[in-house]
């Protein structure tokens, strides 16, 4: 098994609900708490497993807002595991989930330095490294109804932009989505082979803008006539070939 997430950048609206659900579930989960150092104060910094950033892609008038939720990609070639001297950071054989054993970590930060995706955050309070567990304490919990055995972020997403499943199974929902929607990995050139994939925004026609309307209607009669002649001239003889 190779468990991971697919995130649809076309439908994500950047509401941060997944990050909040993650924090709520995991703060009392196996690697909790997700400490906040100054929760009600000036600078409420703290540990999150999932962060959402928003970007503007391309230039006006083709620009688009893209929201990118990012958590651990549970990489196939995870250097965060091999650099760890204590053996606290490990990747599970059976399902590929990358975890930190809180009782072994010495808080050297080396794994966080090795991660290209910013998925690991040191808990300054307990002095150990924390990261996304893919809700390992939900997805196998037989006390939960089958449809709820999914990561908290996937359960909560209001636009259903997140999918959880087994990438080793070619017919799983995640594999199908990646195949049909050209799912891709972020920063592949670093060579970590991240398992999580992102679905690119769909291509849509440009939304009409004021400039375009003016360009369409603002022409003089004589200009339109000249353009018609020019087009006819350019098209002349094309059919013959």
């Amino acid at each position: 098994m190779k468990l991971g997430l697919v995130i649809d950048l076309d439908t994500c609206v950047g509401c941060h609900a997944c990050a909040v659900a993650c924090k709520q579930w995991n703060t009392s989960g196996t690697t909790g708490p997700l400490t906040d150092y100054d929760p009600y104060g000036e600078n409420p910094a703290g540990v999150w497993f999932n962060r959402i950033r928003s970007y503007e892609v391309d230039d006006y008038p083709n620009n688009k807002t893209v929201n990118t939720p990012m958590s651990c990609m549970h990489c196939d070639d995870a250097a965060c595991v091999t650099v760890c001297p204590t053996g606290a950071s490990y990747k599970r054989e059976e399902d590929g989930i990358v975890l930190v054993d809180q009782s072994k970590c010495m808080g050297c930060n080396l794994c966080a330095w090795a991660c290209p995706y910013g998925a690991r955050e040191l808990d300054e309070d307990s002095g150990v490294m924390k990261k996304c567990t893919l809700c390992v304490d939900r997805i196998y919990d037989e006390a939960l109804p089958v449809e709820e055995r999914q990561p908290a972020c996937v359960m909560t997403c209001p636009t259903s932009a997140r999918f959880f499943g087994d990438f080793d199974d070619p017919n799983s929902e995640v594999s199908t989505l990646v195949r049909e929607r050209s799912g891709y990995a972020m920063m592949p050139e670093v060579g970590y082979n991240p398992v999580n994939k992102y679905l690119p925004p769909r291509q849509r026609p440009k939304a009409p803008t004021i400039e375009k309307k003016e360009a369409a209607t603002g022409q003089t009669l004589i200009g339109k006539w000249m353009k018609r002649q020019k087009d006819a001239f350019n098209d002349f003889g094309k059919g013959a070939r």
């Binding site: 600078n43 910094a45 540990v47 959402i52 928003s54 970007y55 503007e56 892609v57 050139e189």
Partner: peptide, 26 residues
């Protein structure tokens, strides 16, 4: 390449956190 949009300019709009993070500090 970090975000996978290699045929257009990409600009950060919102970093998503309003206070310090481990990433900023480290």
């Amino acid at each position: 390449t970090a975000l996978g949009f290699t045929r257009a300019t990409v600009r950060l709009l919102d970093v998503g956190n309003s206070s310090d993070t481990f990433h900023n500090k480290e």
